[in-house]
């Protein structure tokens, strides 16, 4: 469906703007797919923003339960952050490998990304399990409700990302670097990097600022 650009039709400026840039026609599939996914990511970020807003509203409502400063462990959060950052990097390496169709580095990059993601999820899960076992589960207070939902929502996204990552590897294994698979890989990379951006907001707002409340 790609069209080559044709330029220049003289009578195309009804409002006398002076410059007429002729639209070249439908964009390539690669651009269309990635752009659609980009729009999806923005909508996902709006979804997150509601949970952030809820957290901001409810952070003080501890109902005589624990405050943020009493339950957050900054060391763990720092480790989680580094894990996700490194995974963003390795994900970038995997996308470069996919672009140059190098299977070895692609698998390696994806596998490391997967391991880092799983390590992140393990730490988060242990944090949650630990809180629940101390009686500080999400039903304890509105603050904990907001905390578990926001951080858990990010965790669910990471889990979905890991699942997607594995099917991406399987697809490359079974079908090779086909054009449609490369497009999906591009979307996956966008997804993974976006999750990292959301995590920056999570650790800053929830853990660091949240400890101050």
């Amino acid at each position: 469906m790609t069209m080559t650009a044709t330029i220049g039709h003289a009578h195309a400026d009804p409002h006398h703007i002076g410059i007429v840039v002729e639209h070249p026609g439908p964009a390539s599939k690669r651009i269309v797919t990635a752009y659609g996914f980009w729009v999806f990511l923005l909508s996902d970020i709006v979804m997150f923003s509601c949970f952030f807003a809820a957290y901001a509203v409810l952070v003080g409502q501890t109902a005589d339960g624990p405050k943020g400063s009493e339950i957050f462990e900054h060391r763990n959060v720092a480790i989680e952050t580094v894990l996700l950052l490194l995974s963003s990097f390795t994900c970038g390496m995997a996308s470069i490998a996919a672009d140059v169709r190098n299977r070895f580095w692609f698998y390696l990059g994806m596998a490391v990304t997967c391991v880092l993601g799983l390590a992140f999820l393990t730490i988060e899960f242990r944090e949650f399990a630990n809180l629940v076992s101390r009686g500080y589960g999400p039903s304890r207070s509105a603050f904990l409700t907001a905390f578990f939902s926001l951080v858990g929502c990010h965790g669910l996204h990471v889990s979905a990302g890991v699942l997607w990552l594995l099917t991406m590897m399987a697809q490359v294994f079974a079908k090779g670097f086909r054009a449609d698979i490369l497009r999906r890989m591009m979307c996956f990379a966008l997804f993974w990097h976006a999750l990292d951006i959301i995590w920056v907001a999570v650790f800053s707002v929830v853990y660091l600022l949240g400890s101050a409340v």
Partner: peptide, 20 residues
């Protein structure tokens, strides 16, 4: 959020435990 309140006992919109 409403569903979490209903299914898992969260407190986003309840009158108890600081929900709003």
């Amino acid at each position: 959020m409403l569903l979490l309140d209903r299914y898992l006992g969260f407190h986003f919109f309840t009158n108890e435990a600081g929900g709003n």
